[in-house]
Amino acid sequence: MTAAAEQTLSVVVERELPHPPEKIWRALTQPQLIEEWLMKNAFKPTVGHAFSLSADWGTVECKVRTVEPNRTLSYSWDAAPLESIVTWTLTPTASGTMLRMEQTGFRHDQPMFYGGAKMGWPKFIDRLEDVLARLD
Score class of each variant (00 low, 15 high):
4 A>C: 06
4 A>V: 09
4 A>I: 11
5 A>R: 12
9 L>T: 06
12 V>N: 02
12 V>M: 04
13 V>L: 10
14 E>M: 11
17 L>K: 08
18 P>S: 06
20 P>C: 04
22 E>Y: 09
23 K>S: 08
23 K>M: 09
24 I>L: 13
26 R>A: 14
28 L>C: 10
28 L>H: 09
28 L>M: 07
29 T>Y: 08
33 L>I: 15
33 L>H: 09
34 I>S: 02
34 I>A: 04
39 M>A: 12
39 M>S: 14
41 N>P: 09
49 H>A: 03
50 A>R: 10
50 A>T: 12
51 F>E: 02
51 F>R: 02
52 S>T: 10
53 L>P: 02
54 S>W: 12
55 A>N: 13
58 G>E: 10
58 G>L: 09
60 V>S: 07
60 V>Y: 02
61 E>C: 05
63 K>G: 06
65 R>H: 09
66 T>A: 02
67 V>W: 08
68 E>D: 14
70 N>D: 14
70 N>Y: 15
72 T>W: 03
72 T>L: 12
73 L>T: 04
74 S>V: 11
75 Y>G: 02
76 S>R: 05
76 S>T: 11
78 D>Q: 14
79 A>R: 15
81 P>V: 00
85 I>R: 04
86 V>S: 02
87 T>N: 03
88 W>A: 07
92 P>G: 15
92 P>M: 13
93 T>P: 05
93 T>R: 09
94 A>P: 01
97 T>G: 07
100 R>G: 04
100 R>M: 13
100 R>F: 06
103 Q>S: 06
103 Q>R: 03
104 T>A: 13
105 G>Y: 06
109 D>E: 13
109 D>Q: 07
110 Q>H: 07
110 Q>C: 05
113 F>M: 01
114 Y>A: 00
114 Y>M: 01
115 G>I: 00
116 G>C: 01
116 G>H: 00
117 A>P: 01
118 K>P: 00
119 M>T: 15
119 M>Y: 04
122 P>H: 04
123 K>N: 10
124 F>R: 01
126 D>E: 15
126 D>V: 05
132 L>Y: 04
133 A>Y: 01
134 R>T: 14
134 R>S: 14
136 D>K: 15
